[in-house]
Amino acid sequence: MNLVKWSRIKSPWVFHFNAGGCNGCDIEILASLMPRYDIERFGMILRGSPRHADVMLVTGTVTRQIYPRLRRIYDQIPDPKFTLALGSCACSGGVFQQCYNVHEGADKAIPVDVYVPGCPPRPQAIIDGAVKLLQKISKS
């Protein structure tokens, strides 16, 4: 395994974007940063700026209002970048499916690498999704 790929797997910095969720998933993201689960063990830090991030955590169904903003924030992340869709909303629209104002999932707006279902997904599920993403990076 070469050095650059090793460093990419070992230090995925995450950026969190709420695309119109109910905040349930966001609280679970916080829980996975907290002492009990602590994803900093894997070198993940939550960054405030998309320019510093490698992985984007998208939560919530993508509403019509947020759609262009989600695209723009995604474009602001420097390559190589990866996306994690967290929660049923971000996977498929969840309970808001077929509403007049939603785009039914993050993959309608941006490419998504890993889907983590659940409403909201438990921190264990988020960590599992993150590990799957890291495996995907190491295989690529």
């Binding site: 650059v4 460093s7 990419r8 900093e40 063990r41 490698d54």
Partner: peptide, 25 residues
């Protein structure tokens, strides 16, 4: 919490991994 523990022995290579990753981005 634990902090970084999986990068190198006891996570000691974590800052190195961060640096290399950022340089290659």
């Amino acid at each position: 919490r634990y902090g970084p523990i999986y990068t190198g022995p006891r996570g000691i290579l974590q800052p190195v991994a961060d640096l290399i990753k950022l340089l290659a981005k």
